[in-house]
């Protein structure tokens, strides 16, 4: 038994270490290791090219939508901006929202600019030609599709309803599914900001 004692203590230590490493709990879905890191090259609202380097060191919230979106997109963007406002002051500038329009035919840079400005300052409106968007959505295992236009030319667009959260280093970390409250999102973002504050 005495010979087994060191072994037991090592085992207990390992178990405690295992527990300590596991105390991270999130409201969103943990997608660490399931998805590739943040990478894109898109068009900004003033015609410039935008890459992840432009928001380096911040937590990035990637969301696909379109400006004519009747309910899901405005609700999500409002929730995101509210959750960022609830963060501790020091972290409020550490979160960048990337709104990628998957409807480039209707969403001109001007239209996109006025849309995102409505939801706050640290939100970037982005879009690109359809093939580029297809590549980006494929990278994050999501897609979008268009309905037939109605008589007045309006059409519905199917798109992801989740928000992809990348940490300061650009690693995919969380997927915020619809149904989370701004408070819950805020807690997740604070925890993420804390673990790697610069």
């Amino acid at each position: 038994m005495t010979r087994l004692l060191p072994l037991c203590s090592v085992f207990v230590a390992l178990m405690l270490a295992g527990c300590a490493g596991n105390d991270e709990s999130w409201h969103g879905k943990d997608i660490s290791g399931l998805m590739p890191e943040l990478e894109f090259q898109l068009k900004g609202t003033n015609g410039n090219t935008v890459t992840p380097a432009d928001s380096e060191g911040t937590i990035r919230l990637l969301y696909f939508g379109f400006t004519s979106c009747p309910d899901v997109c405005p609700t999500t963007l409002t929730d995101l901006s509210r959750s960022i406002h609830q963060l501790p002051e020091e972290y409020q500038d550490d979160v960048t929202t990337l709104f990628v329009s998957v409807d480039p035919r209707r969403d001109t840079p001007e239209r996109l600019a006025s849309y995102v400005n409505f939801f706050g300052e640290r939100i970037v409106g982005l879009t690109a030609e359809e093939p580029t968007l297809r590549q980006l959505t494929k990278r994050y295992r999501t897609t979008f599709g268009y309905d037939e236009p109605d008589a007045s030319g309006n059409y519905n667009v199917s798109h992801s309803s989740a928000v992809y959260v990348f940490d300061r280093d650009g690693n995919a970390r969380l997927l915020l599914r619809p149904g989370l409250s701004p408070e819950q999102i805020s807690e997740d973002l604070a925890q993420l900001a804390q673990e790697s504050s610069p």
Binding site: T137, T143, G145, Y146, D147, S158, S160, A162
Partner: peptide, 13 residues
């Protein structure tokens, strides 16, 4: 299976 909702459908269904 909400993953299809989360990841967007191939067409709006």
């Amino acid at each position: 299976y909400d993953v299809y909702e989360v990841c967007g459908r191939a067409w709006p269904m």
